[in-house]
Design a protein around this nucleic acid. Structure first.
Lengths: 258, 258
DNA sequence: TTAAGTTAATCAAACGATTGACCTAATTAA
DNA sequence: TTAATTAGGTCAATCGTTTGATTAACTTAA
């Protein structure tokens, strides 16, 4: 009975979607173990960065990963567990860049050493450099979007993202804000200011459709990026109460002629 | 056959969930027509403000509205159509407040008439008044959240929200930003600045879990609100390049009207 | 032999939508 | 005036899909 069914099914072969390199069966050789697991994590980061666990189906995940449906249960135990693993993976993937960012900010603080003017200039350079990195092809936009989504729609993974990604970065930003505003790092206003400054950049991503619509843009490329960088630099310096007389604003801001 | 089934079902009576006032049958009297429609819209605004159409089921909507499942199809044609109707309703519900906000901003512009110092003071008062309104019980937080969600995860209703809610308000803010920075309203920088200023307020809502976690708060009440208002006021004035002379504490705003 | 992993088939639950029976105010016809 | 009809709406039951998860058979390196 069963054998008949199986045979029939074996010859059936419906659609396989996009031609995938056909997962090899059997036990994997020592070196490349749990390959399906990795493929699932990559697919999960991509899909969950756009849609949230409720709106992404296990079948979508499996197909995107080129993996059998049951691999999710086998490797992670279920969809929700896969989501948490993806968050964890995202945090780890970002570790090098996170550390670089923190080091950069610490370096600025160390090298400007309280000189407001120098600090302002360094931050201006930083914003420019940050956006330059942001538009590069290898910038992990998707991974970051996943974490942002988790922060916006918290699940059980929330505190992990806060503890291991947000807090370290925000602490560094707060230290910088403290120096800029001549306040103590422990001052609540300084922490909040750090978030304000950060939101100046992230607002462009979070409210992207609104910004593009308002500006009449279709993306952030070329000239549009320059407009954004110019304003963001000014905004951040102003938020921090730093002088902004550097290379920019040759036009009508400081000297009101009318 | 069928009659037997129906009778059996009639006496079955499983669970009805929370005790609802039991929708009356028959044709409604002239005055109160389409009552179920209205109840569905209210429930839709509430549920869709938190979860997005994909994650809210028709059964959830029907139960929250105290209405039969098929009422959704009957009144709107389907879940997606109900979502669009809810967006439309939200836009209409916000019309009075939207107009008041725009009028308020226009009044500020008219009455300060280019005086930067007066403008700064008026904006300071505005922020204070805005937050005062924000925390009142009748403030339509849920309705606004629905529109924000649509902007963040655009569907077919996106352009409606932009055209009828965002653009009018942002245009008014841009006019104010133009005066504050001595630029032309058509200047892209001014439009972007308007969005920056707005995001200073909305960031508190969008990134609420992050802000609360970073600040060690459980909500925005009392002292926490004061901290927020203080920083937001300063931030907005700085973003607009306006003087922040004002004594932020124990200063009575001229418009105590709410 | 076992350990590690893949695969098609299958399951119960939940999903959006539809149906036909039912109910009553309003309208029309006799 | 009253009886029939229609308009507007509710309701339980049901349909076909999709969902997340499980299973048993299969495959190959260790």
């Amino acid at each position: 009975m069963k054998d008949i069914k199986k045979l029939a099914a074996a010859t059936a072969s419906v659609d396989d979607g996009p031609a995938m390199p056909a997962m090899r069966r059997g036990r994997p050789p020592k070196g490349n173990a749990a390959e399906g697991r990795k493929k699932l994590l990559v697919a999960a980061i991509t899909l969950f960065s756009e849609q949230g666990p409720d709106s992404v189906s296990t079948r979508q995940l499996a197909q995107a990963a080129g993996v059998n449906l049951s691999a999710i249960t086998y490797h992670f135990g279920g969809k929700d567990a896969l989501y948490e693993a993806a968050i964890r993976q995202a945090i780890d993937d970002l570790a090098p860049r996170r550390q670089m960012l923190i080091n950069y900010l610490e370096t600025i603080l160390r090298e400007t050493d309280g000189d407001q003017k120098a600090l302002a200039k360094a931050i201006g350079s930083f914003v420019k450099a940050f956006f330059a990195v942001l538009v590069k092809d290898d910038f992990p936009l998707t991974t970051i979007r996943l974490l942002m989504r988790e922060l916006h729609h918290p699940t059980t993974a929330f505190s992990q993202v806060i503890d291991q990604h947000i807090d370290p970065v925000q602490d560094a930003i707060a230290r910088l804000a403290a120096v800029a505003t001549n306040c103590d790092v422990s001052d609540p206003q300084v922490r909040l200011l750090g978030l304000s400054v950060t939101s100046q950049i992230f607002m462009l991503g979070i409210m992207r459709p609104v910004v593009l619509s308002r500006m009449g843009w279709s993306d952030y490329s070329a000239d549009n990026a320059n407009t954004v960088i110019k304003l963001t630099t000014t905004s951040i310096l102003r938020l921090l109460g730093l002088p902004e007389n550097i290379d920019r604003f040759e036009d009508n801001d400081e000297l009101s002629e009318s």
